[in-house]
Structures are given as C-alpha cells and as structure tokens.
C-alpha cells in the first residue's frame, strides 16, 4: 500500500495483497504482449510462422512459381517428383509445384472471404438474437434454421447457380452456408454471458446496449467463435475443393488446391503426386489454422494469460 493519507487507516490488506507486486506493468502495448505469449506456445508459434509463409507464397505467387500455371509440356506428362519438377507433373505436363504455389492464392482467398462473410453476418445475427431474446431471437433463429435445413452443398450449388461460377461467388456461397453455424455458436455463447452479473453491473452504471454488447458480451462470448473461425477456415478450403470438383468453383485450367486434388483423383493409382501435394497443402494449412486458433483462444483469456506469463517469469 502506498502511504496516502486516508481519513481512516485503510483496512489491512488481505493475505493475497502481498502476492501482487505494486508495480505498473502495462508498459508494453497489449498486442505485443499477446504476440509474446503466443510465441511461447510452440504449436501456435510454428503454425503462425507456417501460415505467414503460406500467405507470403500466396501473395508473391507469380514471382515464386518456376513456370506459369498453364504451361503445357507434352513430353513431360506425369513425371514423378524430380529436381526439375519438385512435385512432379500432371497429365498435361504442367508443373505441379508451380500450380500448388499459384493455387494457394485462390484457395486462401476463397477461404478467408467465405469465413469473413460467415463470421461477420453470422456473429452479428447470433449476438442480437442471443442478447435481445424474445421475438428478435425467434425471427432470426428461425431464418437460420431455414438456411440450416438445406444440405450445405445443395445450398452452395443454388447460390452458384444464381450468381454463376467463379472464385468470388464460391466464397460467397460457402460463406452463406456457414452463416447459421456462426449464428448458432455465437448465440449459444451470448446466452450464457448475457446473464452474467457483470453485464447487469455494467447496466447498473448506465451503460448502453451497444456498450454492453461490444465491451462485455462479445469479448466474453468470443472463445468459441474464435475456435469456430479456425475450424471454418479449414472447412472452407475443403468446401472450395468440393465445389471445384463439381465444376462450380474455380474453373479449369485455373489452379486451386481443391480442384487439383479432384483432378488428381483419376490418376491416384499411377501418379500419386498429382493429388498428394495439393492434398498436403490443404492439410498443412488447415492444421495450422486450427493450432493457431487454439493458441489464440488461450492467449486472449486473461486468466490463462497470467498462468502462462507467471510460469515464465
């Protein structure tokens, strides 16, 4: 305790007072501390680094790819991996290494875009439905149920049938399919947080609904949403593959991991590398998203944060 004069001696601090060093420790900005803690989780750190690499590859794809995506070389058809073609070549003699690099941009863009659409719209709907309840909840969630009732692929096909194929519309279609998932996850989480005493406490000092939602309800309801986001990124990449396989997503000859996987399926018994490398790319990306999502969820929780920081100090 500092020696500030008080009208009456401050009641003696309880036992745990001693455990709290009275130094200010908010010197480092919040996000730097978050990054620092994230780096302590090996799985999250490696995943983050790998994802950064994948994103960089996707951004600088044209510069990195040894050949163009659609350069056909008839005499090099179905070559196994070699020094010249690290990932081998496909049935038209196209370099799979180059196509995997160029496909990263397509797959990631669709994945991010789709999840962004689902996250923003779905979470907003779930937030409002969960917080206000009553008829707002009834109306919004019944609409979500209607969306949910359609089989995912059928709904995506319907959207693409209306809007026409292409990677932008694929992202939109996948995003729409995932809106009810985010709405449900968010609503369930909000329903729990809404009844917390600290929300009522905040209301008791005059906070507006907007303030309650943005400062208290959303941050405390976020962990399941973060996990859902990382899982959905993975599923969106796979869904793009499925739609491309059906001929509705990325249009050949443009490369996307899903489309390459689908095209390679026919050659799986004579040329495994056609499907293997794009498959590995999807697998690694999805795994990294999940591990990073888990790490992020832990780091964003102040209670976990203290445990982690305490363990290292």
């Amino acid at each position: 305790m500092t020696g500030q004069p008080l009208p009456e001696p401050a009641p003696s601090p309880t036992a745990t007072d001693a455990g709290i060093p009275s130094t200010q420790r908010a010197a480092r900005p919040r996000w730097r501390e978050t990054l620092g803690l994230l780096a302590r989780n090996p799985a999250a750190a490696v995943s983050g680094a790998l994802l950064l690499l994948i994103v960089l590859v996707a951004v600088f794809d044209e510069a990195l790819a040894p050949t163009g995506p659609n350069e056909i070389s008839v005499e090099d058809r179905l070559q196994p991996p070699s020094l010249e073609h690290p990932f081998g070549t496909d049935d038209l003699g196209r370099d799979i290494f180059s196509r995997v690099i160029l496909g990263a941009a397509v797959s990631l863009r669709v994945g991010f875009l789709a999840v962004a659409v689902a996250l923003v719209i779905g979470s907003l709907i779930g937030l409002l439905a969960g917080f206000y309840g009553r008829w707002v909840d009834d109306v919004l969630m019944r609409i979500m149920d209607m969306l949910f009732a359609f089989p995912a692929v059928l709904l995506a096909i319907a959207v693409l049938a209306v809007r026409g194929p292409g990677s932008g519309n694929t992202a939109l279609a996948i995003g729409i399919v995932y809106i009810p998932v985010f709405a449900r996850v968010t609503r369930a989480s909000v329903l729990g947080v809404r009844e917390e005493v600290y929300v009522r406490a905040s209301r008791s000092v005059g906070a507006s609904d907007l303030r309650l939602l943005t400062r208290h309800v959303l941050p405390n309801a976020a962990p399941p949403i973060i996990v859902q986001t990382s899982i959905s990124l993975a599923f969106a990449v796979l869904a793009e593959a499925a739609l491309s396989f059906l001929g509705l997503g990325t249009q050949p000859p443009n490369p996307s991991w899903g489309l390459m996987l689908a095209e390679g399926r026919g050659f799986i018994d004579i040329a495994w590398w056609l499907a293997f490398f794009p498959g590995m790319a999807i697998f690694l990306t999805v795994l990294c998203f999940n591990l990073l999502g888990d790490g992020l969820r832990d780091v964003l929780d102040p209670r976990q944060r203290t445990l982690m920081a305490g363990g290292a100090r």
Binding site: E196, V197, A201, S202, S204, V205, R215, R303
Partner: peptide
C-alpha cells in the same frame, strides 16, 4: 443510474474477467 449505484453479492461474478480493474472502475 449515475446517481444510484449498486454493489452486488458475488464479487467473483460482478467484475468482467476480461477487463482490468481500471477499465471496470472507469466505466461509469
């Protein structure tokens, strides 16, 4: 609600776990 405050029963539930003491006290 500015002129009337409330102290709640359970001090473990009435403070937002994701906000610092300063943020909580500064809210009003």
């Amino acid at each position: 609600r500015r002129r009337a405050g409330m102290v709640f029963q359970d001090p473990f539930a009435s403070l937002d776990p994701r906000r610092t003491v300063a943020q909580t006290v500064a809210e009003p």
